[in-house]
Structure formats: structure tokens, C-alpha cells
Design a protein around this nucleic acid. Structure first.
Length: 196
DNA sequence: GTATGGATCTTCT
DNA sequence: GAAGATCCATACA
């Protein structure tokens, strides 16, 4: 078992350390291979505007899910980080599918493993995560759960975030080396992160 | 292989 | 009324 303090740490550290964890919902699960950090101090974060009906989850207890609709179509899954009253979260951007592949294929109406969870909107569809999971606990009490990695992991690489227009220069995207299931190929000149 | 545009809806102005 | 942390089908090279 792990503790809520893990998620109360700086969001950049949590984003880096979550690479290699497992997200599980029912019979489907996958290994996290890509994350991005968002913090209220930078403009790309929803919490940047302060506490509203939409963003209140981000200021809640660490370890909760923040799920919102993107482009009117997709549900995106985040993990709330930093102490309560600080608006920050880690976006889960891609998984290596590990359990329930056939169920994922049925939900995604696709065959190729590489296409099942290689994007933030894809993985929520594959795992059947929806807006009703917003504010549920990811630490074992809710239907969607995070599980820590079994053994030591290689340090992920860091680079700029994807699909945003504000604060796009910050290198707050973290990616597992060697996975083919990332949402977008890594740019040249990738950087090793500091050891965990 | 890359490029483009449509789908669709919550939130805030 | 516009913007947006996306995905996919289609068009072209």
C-alpha cells in the first residue's frame, strides 16, 4: 500500500514518478508510459483561473481523480497533486495495455495494441473512464485505482507538453523510454530526467 | 508518409 | 460566442 503523501509532493516529481505505475479499472489495466504536469502557477493549467465549479477538484485532496471533457468529445484523466488548496494535477497521456486487451479492443473498435491507449482520450475510452469518475479516490477506495510499480524503473525522459498553446515551452511531459505506445514520437535531443 | 478539417460540449466572457 | 490538455477519416504526396 502507498500513501496520500506521495501525491502531496511537487507535481513535477509526481509526474516523473508515476511513469511505470498501473492504472486499473475493472478487468482492464495498463502501465503508465506518458504523463504531463499541470500547476496553477502556469497558464496551461485549468487551475490557473482559480477555484471555480470546474476546477474545484484540482484544489482538493491529493490522490483524487480530475476528469474533464476535452474538445466536447473526450474524457481526460488526471491525478490531483500537491497539498490541498494547491491546484495541480498530472495528466495521464498514454498506457502500455496490460490486462483486458480484448475488452479494450471492443471498446475502441480497433485491433492494434499500439492504438488502444496511445493518447489521453484513447486510454479513457479503453478503460471506460468517464466524467462520473471525477473526484473519485484513486488510492484504492474508488473503481479506478493506481498501483505502484513492482521493481526499479529506468528514469523517464522529459520534454515539452503537447496540444497546448499556453506555457507550451515548459518541459513538463514525461515519457517511458522504449514504449511504442506513447501518444507522439519523442523529439530529437531527448533529455534524461534526474534520478528518482 | 504528412496535412487538414469535422465532430461535439463545457466553461467562461 | 469562442476556445480548448483530442481523435479520426480523408486527401494528397
Amino acid at each position: 500500500m502507498f500513501d496520500r503523501d506521495f501525491f502531496a509532493r511537487p507535481v513535477l516529481d509526481v509526474a516523473r514518478d508515476l511513469v511505470g505505475w498501473t492504472v486499473r479499472h475493472g478487468d482492464t489495466a495498463g502501465l503508465i508510459v506518458e504523463t504531463e504536469a499541470y500547476h496553477q502557477d502556469e497558464a496551461a493549467c485549468h487551475a490557473h483561473v482559480g477555484v471555480t465549479a470546474r476546477t474545484s477538484t484540482l484544489f482538493g485532496p491529493p490522490g483524487l481523480a480530475y476528469v474533464y471533457r476535452s474538445y466536447g468529445i473526450h474524457a481526460l484523466l488526471n491525478v490531483v497533486c500537491e497539498p490541498e488548496d494547491v491546484g495541480a494535477a498530472v495528466l495521464i497521456r498514454a498506457l502500455d495495455p496490460s490486462d483486458g486487451l480484448d475488452l479494450m479492443r471492443a471498446r475502441r473498435r480497433l485491433d492494434r495494441e499500439q492504438d488502444l491507449c496511445s493518447g489521453p482520450g484513447k486510454l479513457t475510452q479503453a478503460l471506460d473512464v468517464g466524467l462520473h469518475h471525477n473526484e473519485t479516490d484513486l488510492l484504492g477506495a474508488g473503481p479506478v485505482r493506481l498501483e505502484p510499480p513492482q521493481g526499479p524503473l529506468p528514469a523517464p525522459v522529459a520534454g515539452p507538453r503537447i496540444g497546448i498553446t499556453k506555457a507550451a515551452e515548459l518541459p513538463w511531459r514525461f515519457c517511458a523510454t522504449g514504449s511504442r505506445n506513447v501518444s507522439k514520437p519523442w523529439p530529437p535531443g531527448l533529455r534524461e530526467t534526474l534520478p528518482r
